[in-house]
Computed example of a mutant assay.
Amino acid sequence: MSTTLRKVSVLEPVNPNKSTALFGGKASGILNWNDIAYPHFYQHREQIRALFWRASEVDMTHDIKQFPTLSIEEQDAFLKIIGLLATLDGPQTDIAARIAQFATDPSVKSIMATIADQESEHNHSYAYVLSSVTTLQDQIESFETGRVDKVLLERNRRIVEVYNEFAINPTIHTVLKAMVYTSLLEGLFFYSGFAFFYNLARNQKMVGTSTMISYINRDELQHGRFISELFRATLAENPEYNTEEFTEWVYDQFRHSVEQEIHWSHYVLHAIDGIDLIEMEGYIKYRANKMLRLLGLSDIYEEHTKNPMKWIRAYVDNFDGTKTDFFEQKSRQYTKTSDLNGFDEL
């Protein structure tokens, strides 16, 4: 039976400042960054905070002129992909806030608050882009995509189920599952969409939009790192959930998500010049392997350990990767990602 979580009180002075557990523990609510249970979380905080930007800072002048010159296929993909990104990023603000509500550790609350704020700006940026290049009616229809497009609805079905399960029944088990899907969103689900905008940019089209997407992509890489770190630390604190059944559940979600992302990429990018869909499939599988390693699991696509779309690296920062197999050995001590060597490309 999974431990039910309760919303954490704002202040409980009888408890220690340093939390006794990430979830379901005790803490006063007073945050002293020099006295936290996971000191390296401070580095995550600093890296995420360093990424502050606003959509209104991006110059859309040339994009306004270029959008009408895009092919019908490019315009259609542009609007559908913005609809996809808005569908995924909108709930990310909420899920970050909900995780924070049940986190005992005040450093986690603080970091998740920053993540929630950045996700809110991501969502705003999509509205900003659309308001710059198209009509209000097209903007509304683009944001309706996540509610009415059958392919997108099926693609997002499990996300809806897992996030709502955590919202209705917050437990250690459901928060772990929600973090798996947050990792999938941050590290996999956006990437065929990102590739579309980067492909436009390498052909000198919609460079302002691509610049904004690269800012979002950079944020998501840092969010994915922290969420993976939080997942692994939570699992290490609650080893009873480190079971073969749960491990297989995670692998199944990744396989399913890869299938859905590939299906979506074929659906939305099939008529786009410059995008090789076979190459895209390999890239999606490569991204899945990367995110699995961050979660402490093994590659499931052994033939896709290298990035087949290296041109994408020009548009977003690289970041460190990790591989820790404590799923495979329950007794394996938790190791923070910053203690692990190795450099992994985008």
Rank of each mutant, 00 (worst) to 15 (best):
E57S: 06
E57R: 06
E57I: 01
M60K: 05
T61M: 06
D63R: 00
I64F: 04
I64V: 11
I64R: 13
I64W: 05
K65F: 07
Q66G: 03
F67E: 06
F67C: 03
F67Q: 02
E73P: 00
E74V: 03
D76N: 13
A77G: 07
F78Q: 02
F78L: 01
L79S: 09
I81D: 02
I81Q: 00
I82S: 06
I82C: 13
G83K: 02
G83Y: 01
L85S: 10
A86E: 10
L88R: 00
D89R: 03
D89C: 00
G90K: 05
P91R: 03
Q92R: 09
D94K: 14
I95L: 09
A96W: 02
A96I: 03
A97T: 11
R98F: 11
I99A: 01
I99Q: 00
I99N: 03
I99W: 03
A100F: 07
A100G: 07
F102V: 13
A103T: 11
A103F: 01
A103V: 08
P106I: 04
V108W: 08
V108F: 08
K109T: 10
S110G: 11
S110N: 12
T114L: 15
T114S: 15
I115Q: 05
I115E: 01
A116C: 12
D117A: 14
Q118N: 13
N123S: 14
H124A: 10
Y126M: 06
Y126K: 05
S131Y: 11
S131E: 14
S131R: 14
S131L: 11
T134D: 02
L136S: 13
D138K: 12
D138E: 14
Q139E: 11
E141D: 15
E141W: 02
S142T: 10
V148A: 13
E154G: 07
R157D: 14
R158H: 10
I159C: 05
E161I: 15
V162A: 00
V162W: 03
Y163A: 00
E165G: 06
F166V: 12
A167N: 04
N169Y: 12
N169W: 07
N169E: 13
T174P: 15
K177Y: 08
M179R: 06
M179A: 06
M179S: 07
V180I: 08
T182N: 04
S183M: 03
L184S: 04
L185S: 02
G187M: 10
L188N: 09
F190C: 05
F190L: 02
F190S: 01
